[in-house]
Amino acid sequence: MSAPAEYLREEELDHNLIYEVASFPGGHKIFSCQQCGSCSGSCDMAQDMDYTPRKMIEMIRAGMRKEVLGANAQWLCTTCYYCTVRCPRGIEPTEVLYAVKSIGIRDRGVDPNNDSPKFYETFCDTVHKFGRQHEPTLMAIYAFKGNPLRLMGFAPLGIGMLAKGKLGLAPSRVKNVDEVRKLIDRYRNKV
């Protein structure tokens, strides 16, 4: 987490960021934000975020690329959509934060200690493999990819799920999995 700059220096700003975010589905209305804070006031996660949804939007407009991509706000967003249904200007902060996550994952602009991008990419890889999600494979690869301690964290839950027959052991596959792979590849290369 980087502290907010006391003074913004022009050479450190990226005025393209807002256009980039606006090009995502649901991102285009970001220009009309009136900074009312209804989004932050509706956000259950705001108290844990380094920058609230309202601040994130203002920082995107200001072009604070590094601070925006390095924030924890987008990774704490649970996509509850309260902000989106309550924004008086029709802005969709949930989609704005999806855009910020997506740009961060593509540009590797995220703090390497943050596990979220690894989890989301592993999720994507698993669907690329089977066409559907397979929770045990997802957990295994995710734990393996980074910190093995992660698996320990999941173990109690995993064992419980197993005992309850809630861990589908054999992956269920899509017959025409090539179609799913093509779709994933199409967008993965693009972002």
């Binding site: 995502f24 996509t79 999806y98 997506s102 994952i105 979220s116 989301y120 990419e121 669907v127 779709l183």
Partner: peptide, 15 residues
């Protein structure tokens, strides 16, 4: 196939 859901939307919403 998988609907895409939040984790995949985080990688790329259009995907």
């Amino acid at each position: 196939n998988c609907c895409g859901t939040a984790p995949i939307s985080s990688v790329n919403p259009e995907m």
